[in-house]
């Protein structure tokens, strides 16, 4: 509960922060807190991903963005009440939605009854992989996973091509034009 209080305090501080560099640092703290909270909820793999992506990679990416754009924030030109109202309404709708959810860890919840028991029972015989999640991802939903991997691979290639193009232009300015062999 104390962790959640800290999480909320961090979020409010980020929203009120005018210096974008400090805001980036605080998002790192926020990710660490979120990861700790997920660990307390007994989801270590989600916490692992949150820490690696939220605190590690996205801090570096946001700093790289700041390096390109500058770290000053434009003064906002509209009143904060409309966004605040939109956020409050959305949040209220989400909280209302959680009321229909079964209690945390309820053994009679639909997700515990269907279809996971059959997977847990049959995976060993059908696939022969001890880890059920690996069996689902790699075999039952193999084509799905292949498609996802293809999408991510394509995106990675596109980003690499974009970045390489920029490098070459920078080098192109540098090559001497008087017939000397380029480096």
């Amino acid at each position: 509960m104390l962790l959640l209080t800290l999480l909320a305090a961090t979020a409010v501080t980020i929203a009120r922060m005018r210096s974008l560099l400090a805001a980036v640092m605080l998002t790192g703290i926020y990710s660490f807190l979120g990861a700790g909270w997920m660990l307390l909820l007994d989801a270590p793999d989600v916490a692992f991903t949150e820490a690696a992506v939220g605190a590690g990679v996205s801090t570096v990416l946001m700093l790289a963005t700041l390096a390109l754009t500058g770290s000053d924030m434009k003064p906002r030109g509209h009143s904060p009440w409309l966004p605040l109202a939109a956020v409050l309404v959305t949040g209220a709708a989400l909280v209302y939605g959680t009321m229909d959810m079964p209690a945390f860890g309820d053994p009679n919840a639909p997700i515990q009854l269907y279809p996971s028991p059959s997977y847990v029972d049959k995976t060993e015989a059908e696939i022969g992989v001890p880890n059920v999640i690996t069996a689902v991802l790699g075999s039952y939903r193999g084509y799905d996973t292949l498609g996802e991997t293809t999408v991510i691979f394509t995106a990675g290639i596109a980003v690499l091509l974009l970045l390489r193009g920029r490098h070459r232009r920078v080098r192109g300015d540098d090559t001497p034009s008087d017939g000397e062999t380029p480096r």
Partner: peptide, 29 residues
Amino acid sequence: EFLDLGLVYALINFIGVVALLRFIRFGHF
């Protein structure tokens, strides 16, 4: 076994702080 997770967090923290310091010192990566 949570200790392993702690080790990974320490590494991530290190990367984040090094990136921050590098950004402040040089302004780019």
